[in-house]
Amino acid sequence: MLVLLPPSETKHPGGDGAPLDLPGLSSPELNPVRERLVAAVEALAADVPASRAALGLGRTQDDEIARNAAVRSAPTLPALDRYTGVLYDALDVRSFTRGQRRRADARLAVGSALFGLLRGGDRVPAYRLSAGSQLPGLPTLRALWKPVLTPVLAGAGELVVDLRSGGYADLAPVPGAVTVQVLSERPDGTRSVVSHFNKAHKGRIARLLALTTAEPDSVVRLRALLRRAGLHVEHHAPEELTLVVPADAVVR
């Protein structure tokens, strides 16, 4: 089972690993595009106004541009430790035992605008690049990533659970992947799409899938696994599950 997570805009600073080693990352077939994008963000960082425009940053976020300037020399962290925010708080990999962390590193992967795909243990620096960014002189990120990343994901040879947000899923759609929609249900039975706290619920799903010893190989077995864990999961579309949470539990 491969569980795809979105990255986060915010990232833990610093690190204790050697600088970025592209040949040492998983999925080496992605390295030509990785090298092209790393070179582009590094060069762009020399022009602060252009970086602000391309990356959608305000004047108070120039530290993000400095991160890109140091993308090749800065210390690294494993991907699952680098990203922060609501989803990663719910995932809470720092609470895992060593054995659980090995399983998480094998099962969880992050869809990255800069690196394409990162396995949990791949070491990367802090950086700033979003799925919707447009780097000067380059095609769109979707045009760069889709031809090389989609075959990698399609050839995973295992059940793919795609928890990426829309922009990152668009970079490289995965045929046959299982997606999860999160809906809140009010006492009167009406439902609505969960927006911000969708990330927290997906983080909890990712944690469950990282820790389980089961190996679901179909959407039906995945649904059964989530239901055994006490989640209200419905299956109405062939490759989509719907997680229904009480409205008063959405922000917990």
Rank of each mutant, 00 (worst) to 15 (best):
P6S: 15
P6E: 13
P6N: 14
P6R: 15
P7C: 04
P7E: 01
P7L: 01
P7S: 02
P7Q: 02
P7V: 00
S8D: 13
S8T: 14
S8V: 11
E9F: 12
E9V: 10
E9T: 13
E9W: 09
T10Y: 10
T10N: 15
T10D: 15
T10L: 14
T10H: 14
T10I: 13
K11Q: 15
K11G: 12
K11A: 13
H12N: 13
H12W: 08
P13V: 13
P13K: 10
P13T: 14
P13A: 15
G14A: 05
G14H: 12
G14N: 12
D16V: 06
D16I: 02
D16W: 11
D16A: 14
D16C: 07
D16F: 11
G17Q: 07
G17A: 05
A18M: 10
A18R: 04
A18T: 05
A18C: 03
A18S: 14
A18N: 07
P19Y: 05
P19C: 04
P19F: 10
P19T: 08
P19V: 06
L20M: 04
L20W: 01
L20K: 02
L20P: 01
D21V: 00
D21N: 01
D21I: 01
D21S: 04
D21Y: 02
D21K: 00
L22A: 06
L22Y: 04
L22Q: 04
L22I: 14
L22F: 06
P23C: 11
P23G: 13
P23Q: 03
P23N: 09
P23R: 05
P23S: 06
G24K: 12
G24T: 08
G24N: 12
G24F: 09
L25M: 09
L25A: 10
L25R: 03
L25K: 05
L25Q: 03
L25V: 11
L25Y: 07
S26Y: 00
S26F: 00
S26K: 02
S26G: 12
S26A: 14
S27P: 07
S27L: 05
S27Y: 10
S27Q: 12
S27R: 09
P28G: 00
P28F: 00
P28T: 00
E29C: 03
E29T: 02
E29V: 02
L30Q: 06
L30M: 05
L30C: 02
N31A: 14
N31R: 08
P32E: 10
P32F: 02
V33R: 11
V33C: 08
R34I: 09
R34N: 09
R34V: 06
E35G: 12
E35H: 12
E35D: 13
R36S: 03
R36V: 04
R36N: 01
R36Q: 15
R36K: 10
R36W: 05
L37M: 01
L37C: 01
L37I: 02
V38W: 13
A39Q: 08
A39W: 02
A39Y: 06
A40I: 00
A40D: 04
V41M: 08
V41E: 08
V41T: 13
V41C: 06
E42N: 12
E42F: 03
E42Y: 03
A43S: 15
A43E: 14
A43D: 15
